[in-house]
Design a binder for these strands. Structure first.
Length: 272
DNA sequence: AGTGCGACCCGAACGC
DNA sequence: TGCGTTCGGGTCGCAC
């Protein structure tokens, strides 16, 4: 489940591997994955090179000379660097071949990930990127900003934290962790969140994401960020995936409940 | 405008 | 053992 920390880990890993290598060939084995015109997608990559890899929320932005290749890993998307002669395995959907006979291969078990090619000048108006909210750690992400965003919302705060147009980058894992660290009950309605609680969200989101990036993200189930990199943040999870285990703070049992159809883990004692 | 829910996917986990 | 069913999870689009 790549969230902001996992995507950042992928970005850092890939930057060391693929910048300035000439793209020789692009193979698309699952066309629905590409949101833009397929031929345009291929032609814009071919004989070009990635000059940088940026990130906005959970979106990766592969920078070309005149375009950005946008990539969202959704649930299970991964990038692997392989030799071109290695056989293509199941779930490898996009193959970008460089002139040094290496491949950047996009692997996605559930085919949920998406790619999109846009011209550089389209970045500001590109819907998926433009609507992203503030990221944890950005100084504009303040308690007042959150209170303003929350004040008209009757949804549970857990659901609101997953709204990328408010805070960009949090997924289910870190939303659970941020609420535990902030001692906020995940069912609490957005418009009932106090300034103190909003301040706690600001602080703990920054702290948790920074720490998760340090540790290379969280490896849950089979998810490894890319190129066999394994995240180590799961060792520091306080509530996520810990149903019926002891709360590391008060020693009562961690509870699991659905909120908005998503598994929510929390400590009923610490998060009143 | 805010809210809620199905659709997209397919492997794993579960139930019988 | 084997088969059918349910679950998960980010995002979008649609209905209300």
């Amino acid at each position: 489940m790549p969230e902001i920390a996992e995507v950042e880990t992928v970005r850092n890993t890939l930057k060391k591997q693929i910048l300035y290598k000439k793209i020789r060939e692009v193979k698309i084995l699952y066309e629905q994955m590409i949101e833009s015109d397929i031929e345009e997608f291929k032609n814009s990559l071919k004989n070009n090179q990635f000059v940088d890899i940026k990130r906005r929320g959970k979106w990766l932005l592969f920078e070309l000379e005149n375009h950005y290749l946008l990539s969202h890993l959704r649930m299970e998307g991964k990038f692997f660097l392989k030799f071109h002669h290695e056989p293509i395995v199941k779930h490898e959907h996009i193959i970008i071949t460089f002139s040094d006979n290496t491949d950047l291969r996009y692997h996605d078990t559930r085919k949920f990930g998406r790619m999109n090619l846009i011209k550089k000048e389209e970045l500001k108006t590109c819907k998926s990127i433009a609507k992203q909210g503030l990221e944890p750690g950005e100084k504009e992400l303040t308690a007042d900003y959150l209170l303003e965003s929350f004040k008209s919302k009757t949804m549970p705060i857990k659901t609101i934290l997953l709204d990328q147009t408010i805070i960009s980058g949090l997924g289910n894992i870190y939303a659970n962790e941020v609420l535990f660290a902030s001692k906020i009950n995940p069912f609490k309605k957005g418009n009932r969140i106090t300034k103190k609680e909003a301040q706690m969200i600001v602080i703990s989101a920054d702290k948790i994401i920074t720490r998760a990036i340090e540790l290379g993200g969280t490896t849950i189930k089979s998810y490894t960020s890319s190129l066999g990199v394994t995240g180590r943040f799961q060792q520091e999870l306080m509530v996520h995936k810990r149903e019926n285990e002891e709360c590391r703070n008060c020693h009562n049992k961690i509870k699991k409940e659905k909120i908005g159809g998503r598994s929510t883990y929390y400590c009923p004692t610490c998060q009143k």
